[in-house]
């Protein structure tokens, strides 16, 4: 079909929508609820959960992009005996100092919103999955021949679960430094910690494999979120897929560069 016109008529100012009486009738019968209550109410619908999924997805996408770029400090090595990435980590922890106590800004502006986004995203995913399963009912008894649904789109929940499991390991390994997970962990020594961790081949494989799951997930997600949020315009619709391709490739390649650097002995 030809693309949707850019200037869709909007209620009230579209061409020929001067039926003010009908509009007024429609709105006076409505309850006057607060905007916040209405936004909360939207989350009760599946469509609302998809908005939440996409919005939290955007936050998470911003995070993975930022994280990936931050990781590239690894390749700057050391400077005056201090690893650049250690400085970067320290910079994050001391954000806002001396105005705010150490790590406060990191917690309030980065960690808490991220956790919230994860929780919303996972709750919506869980509840949509249930609703979708219920709607499918009986499965087809003969094999399906999918045309558009691809590996990435059909494994969103699995790639998502793998990302969560990986995330838990990753936090224990390089953020918290749980003894059983990373016995070589020393607080603040980002560079040494990751070199130690990735020096163990099973861990190296884990980190590399997890990027595949993340890559598939964000490749589908970074396009699907436009649909969910209704970001649609014939002038840029074709860029939505391109954006997803470029974004997910950049994130995956960027993340993979660190274990690759370790394997090639560039990072040691």
């Amino acid at each position: 079909m030809p693309p949707l016109p850019a200037g869709l008529p909007r209620g009230g100012n579209g061409p020929g929508c001067g039926n003010g009486r009908m509009e007024a009738m429609a709105s006076t019968t409505r309850e006057r609820t607060s905007k916040l209550a209405r936004i909360g109410g939207v989350y009760r619908t599946d469509t609302g959960k998809k908005y939440a999924m996409a919005t939290s997805g955007v936050v998470l996408l911003a995070f993975v992009l930022g994280h990936m770029i931050g990781n590239l400090h690894v390749f700057e090595g050391a400077h005056d005996g201090v690893y650049r990435i250690d400085e970067y980590g320290e910079g994050l922890r001391s954000l806002g100092e001396p105005l705010f106590p150490r790590t406060l800004v990191l917690w309030v502006f980065l960690r808490l919103p991220l956790t919230a986004a994860f929780l919303v995203h996972i709750h919506a995913a869980w509840s949509l999955t249930r609703s979708n399963k219920a709607a499918r009912g009986a499965k087809y008894q003969s094999p399906r021949n999918y045309l558009a649904a691809n590996y990435a789109s059909r494994t969103m929940r699995w790639s998502g679960v793998i990302v969560v499991l990986f995330l838990l390991w990753h936090l224990a390994d390089l953020t918290i430094g749980v003894e059983a997970v990373n016995p070589g962990f020393r607080r603040g020594e980002v560079y040494q910690n990751l070199v130690f961790s990735l020096g163990r081949w099973p861990v190296w494989i884990l980190y590399t494999a997890a990027q595949a799951a993340l890559g598939f997930h964000i490749w589908h997600g970074a396009w699907s979120l436009f649909q969910s949020l209704g970001v649609n315009n014939p002038r840029f619709n074709r860029f939505r897929r391109i954006f997803a391709n470029v974004f997910s490739t950049a994130v995956v390649v960027g993340f993979l560069s660190v274990p690759l650097g370790v394997a090639l002995d560039v990072v040691r």
Binding site: M1, L4, T33, G41, Q227, G230, N232
Partner: peptide, 20 residues
């Protein structure tokens, strides 16, 4: 076209948030 779904999602959000 799948584009219609995006338009529907946008209209639904507007209807809900603006409480028209």
């Amino acid at each position: 076209s799948l584009d219609n779904i995006a338009v529907m999602n946008r209209d639904y959000l507007q209807a809900k948030i603006r409480n028209r």
